[in-house]
Design a protein around this nucleic acid. Structure first.
Lengths: 211, 211
DNA sequence: ATTTTGTATGTTGTATACAAAATTAAGGGC
DNA sequence: GCCCTTAATTTTGTATACAACATACAAAAT
């Protein structure tokens, strides 16, 4: 999993540029230009692009410039299906394996989110929401699962970001987080998985409105 | 997803070498040596190694030689958990989305396996078994799911290969394939997911014996 | 006018050269 | 003999140079 640091940094930068919309979906990423712009050579830039390609944020075409991915509605829905399966599994395993420290971690994220939820800008709130879900995946104590889960979260970053600005979703999300947290505390698998399912169903619904 | 052809070829070659045991788990992969051996330069070899790293067959360490992965028992079990979730989802979706052609495809693979199952060598049989499961994932008509599923299958290739030689497993596997196929035909989600669950439980059990 | 082909340009693919880091080996002190 | 320090070697990280391929445009032929 560890990568060479420079390529990793470039990948992080590129990822931000893509997700924040500086690089638009469908736009070509020219190695030389982008490398020059960041003051590095093509080699690490190539590696960075490959990293993002594996994450699904970039599409590679042989001998042609890679393109920023523009997922179709179906692709987004498909990704949500997979993410749901992964997160439900996370929830199940977390009920079994989560330590008290894990729960405390999740709880504090939830508290933080509740504290800022009505006046934070959507980006900040969104970051916190992401970390809540990642914390659950971590609490499964299955590193592979956490990694795959995170990959799908990243893939859905952009649509999630777009839907996060739908203000009426906020209260619902927060309530569901509370229910999930409660379920984890009681080690109640059904409650947790139900909460996760509902939440991602909500995401799917929001997506159809935004796209 | 498309990669530059040379790197892809090298990755395929390397993957075979790893899975067949020519490159032992824990062994370092030196870019220069391996590249020279295959008659290519370091650059595409590096890319190939990165590809395998994303598949989990190779572990990258900054500024040190990459190592052929040697997954612990826990890691294998974790991977099986995730694979199960992905394959169960595949089964569910396949019940809904599989076309008649998809089912025919799966059926013919099953028939082929039944035909060769008592005298084929374990490697051939194993390849067929893999393709059966991949066909189910494809029948879900969720490309991302199929891709992730395949990635986890690849990650488990080696242990699966080792357990495939346990001859007493063969009949059980074949029967379960039959049950899954029947369930798909009847669009019976419970039957399919139960079959898949059983099968992968069996794998988990075999693994504990082999490792 | 349309299609085809040739050429020019730009971009990726591969190889190699150089720099930095890590490993190994050697040497000196205890 | 053992350990620490240090030099030599090996190996990866990065940059750059060159080759192959693709695209765009222009000119010529149908």
């Amino acid at each position: 999993m560890t990568e060479t640091p420079l390529a990793e940094n470039i990948a992080n930068q590129l990822r931000r540029d893509i997700l924040r919309g500086k690089l638009r979906p469908g736009a070509p990423i020219k190695e030389r230009d982008n490398a020059a712009e960041m003051g590095v050579s093509r080699t690490p830039m190539r590696e960075a692009i490959r990293i993002l390609a594996k994450e699904g944020l970039v599409n590679l075409r042989p001998s042609r410039s890679p393109l920023v991915a523009e997922p179709s509605l179906k692709e987004v829905m498909d990704a949500i299906d997979v993410l749901t399966a992964l997160e439900v599994l996370s929830g199940k395993l977390a009920c079994r394996n989560a330590t008290e420290a894990d729960l405390e971690d999740i709880r504090s994220i939830h508290a933080h989110m509740a504290r800022i939820y009505d006046d934070a800008d959507s980006l900040d709130l969104f970051e916190v929401d992401m970390s809540f879900h990642r914390a659950i995946a971590r609490a499964s104590h299955n590193a592979l699962l956490a990694e795959s889960h995170q990959a799908y979260l990243a893939r859905l970053w952009r649509v999630r970001y777009l839907t996060a600005s739908l203000r009426h979703n906020r209260a619902r999300v927060l309530n569901q987080h509370g229910a999930i947290l409660e379920g984890l505390h009681q080690r109640d698998v059904d409650k947790v998985t139900a909460g996760i399912g509902l939440q991602l169903e909500g995401l799917a619904q929001s997506v159809t409105q935004v796209v």
